[in-house]
Design a protein around this nucleic acid. Sequence first.
DNA 1: TAATAAAAGTTGCAAGTGCAACTTTTTATT
DNA 2: AATAAAAAGTTGCACTTGCAACTTTTATTA
Lengths: 210, 210
Amino acid sequence: MNGPFTDLSRVEINKLYNLLGVHIYNFNKNQEILPTIKSENIIGIILDGHAQIINIEYNGNEIIIDNLFKDNVFGTNISLTNNENYQIISKTDTQVLVIDYDKLLNPINLKFSYFNVFLKNLFDIINTKFKEKNERIRILEKKQIRDKLLEYFEMQHKKSRQRNIYLPFSLKDLADYIAVNRSAMFRELKHLKDENLININNRKITLLYK
Amino acid sequence: MNGPFTDLSRVEINKLYNLLGVHIYNFNKNQEILPTIKSENIIGIILDGHAQIINIEYNGNEIIIDNLFKDNVFGTNISLTNNENYQIISKTDTQVLVIDYDKLLNPINLKFSYFNVFLKNLFDIINTKFKEKNERIRILEKKQIRDKLLEYFEMQHKKSRQRNIYLPFSLKDLADYIAVNRSAMFRELKHLKDENLININNRKITLLYK
DNA sequence: TAATAAAAGTTGCAAGTGCAACTTTTTATT
DNA sequence: AATAAAAAGTTGCACTTGCAACTTTTATTA
């Protein structure tokens, strides 16, 4: 397992600290990490210890989204879905390194700046994919089809801010995406419709509770 | 949505092509992409079209692991779990850009080489996390507790090449990880034990079918 | 080492889901 | 426009799972 400073000398690491405006924070067990270091756009790296990303749902339920151990990364661009109510809590004494994401890939310091723009783009692409995976996991973690559907609706609604959801794929594909049986999913959609929580015709779903 | 060449001029893109030894491949609908471009360690980017990463399971089942659209990345370091039997198939006419992953972050071409070593490390860290997410999704996609467990065992076995699996966490945590009810999971573990497929005591599980 | 908390192990029951086997509707192809 | 193929919509049934409510065992802490 590689860490952020693999293959780098002490001198080079110090250069990096200056170049990137790195900060290191220390936390005791069970402290909130995020408010302390929060800024617009950061990458955090756990240098030592153990922390958890926890999501607080509308109903008060707390869900462990991710466990962060040594050399794991987190941040507003990584592993966190947008617009969420989350906390990062240290579970042991934890040391965290924080980098300004924009500074990280800001080419003004560097020759071959076009190359670093390219690297930044690659990062963005991977991060986008990363967020998609996390979203899907959030849905798959739900045990009931109803909850999976509602979680999916919730995510779509947050993105579009609209009551109407236009499925980007077929209902069959939706069933695959949330990993349930197609007929069973449809049955549940009907239940939601019968309870006047949604309207559905073909690929247009209207959230009546919003 | 950003692509790999966002914010780069035509001239800069051409420089990149030379610097990185970029190749571009064109595929017709329903062609196998991977064998054509396969090498030790590559990053592929879909420039145009649509492709799917498909896993062929031991029983012949084909599972769509991922859909790749314009500007999505894939590769041996990204989104693919190790040691798997997978295919990447173009679903439409598809154009793919291929980069040698080692060349990408090889510092010999660059000033500030220590900085690029650091970027490479960050890539590695994110990719590791990415693979972990994919593994979990593979498990969560299974509909039955038994299949989730067997998939989990399979993955652990492939990593350690041992019949004995030592759980890195509690059974309660395993239940959370595969997102099922703890008692129901335990019930299923007992069934597997009764059928002489596994042995289990505390956190040591032995696969008797291996 | 005693007390307390957490995890493992167990079971009955109600509810939810997968599956199969359809019919109907929509979309794609010649 | 006719035909074929895919997706949507529907239902009964068996089986699986979640949930609750325990007991027993293993860890943790005072």
